[in-house]
Amino acid sequence: MYEFDFERPTSVADAVAALGTEEAQALGGGQTLIPTMKQRLAMPAKLVSLTGIAEMQGVRRNDAGELCIGGGTTHATVAREARDAYPALADLASHIGDPAVRNRGTIGGSLANNDPSACYPAAVLGSGATVVTSNREIAADDFFEGMFTTALEDGEIITEVRFPVPEAANYQKFEQPASRFALVGVFVARFSGGVRVAVTGAAEEGVFRWHEAEKALSSDFGPGAVEGLSVSADGMIADLHGSAAYRAHLVGVLTKRAVAAAAG
């Protein structure tokens, strides 16, 4: 690892200021960034730890009934504290990595990183959540811009994520056998106004919405509705752990299972 300066501000404002310098980078839980730095694939001159910022912590409901999660909230906290308000989200959080990773890794870090196999992007896109940053609000549909790319600008911090709470939802994660990240993950959420289906792990472009399934499910929310549907293998990730066709197939299977679980 290369040497860097380390700062641990206690407010978002101070963090933004600290990130204003050249080659400065935010440090959330470090569960992605630290291994990357060990491989010397990242070499920030300054790391700005966000863990000391109280205003970025915690799970609460706002007046609009949205579930608001501070950008620095750990997966473990979400798993625990969102359990009653948004069980599908809590369940997703409780299956990210392992307990020690969940005790450090944060929702903000996960979204900023936008790993194509990460879990949270499916929940955020599948819920139509709003990503709140140090200077604006970004709709989920505008946030994810492809593998490891997001709408975030340099130095912009995710301070909160606001989830509209669906009537029913479920996340199905099919684990890659080695990393245990999602080989494919499907998040299905039914709102009064329609159904959203978000798929992670599968596509080279990262998380995406499966519009065809959304349409079918919006008129008939049951596993039967997606029975005959399939996604194209074009643009799907193909690697040691599964071909594009396999991933495309899993999208169908997992969507059906997520609907069955959510409907049941």
């Binding site: 380390f6 641990r8 790391l47 863990t51 020690a100 005790n103 450090r104």
Partner: peptide
């Protein structure tokens, strides 16, 4: 926590 994935300063 994984002590290999946390800085001492944290």
């Amino acid at each position: 926590v994984k002590a290999c994935t946390m800085f001492a300063a944290e």
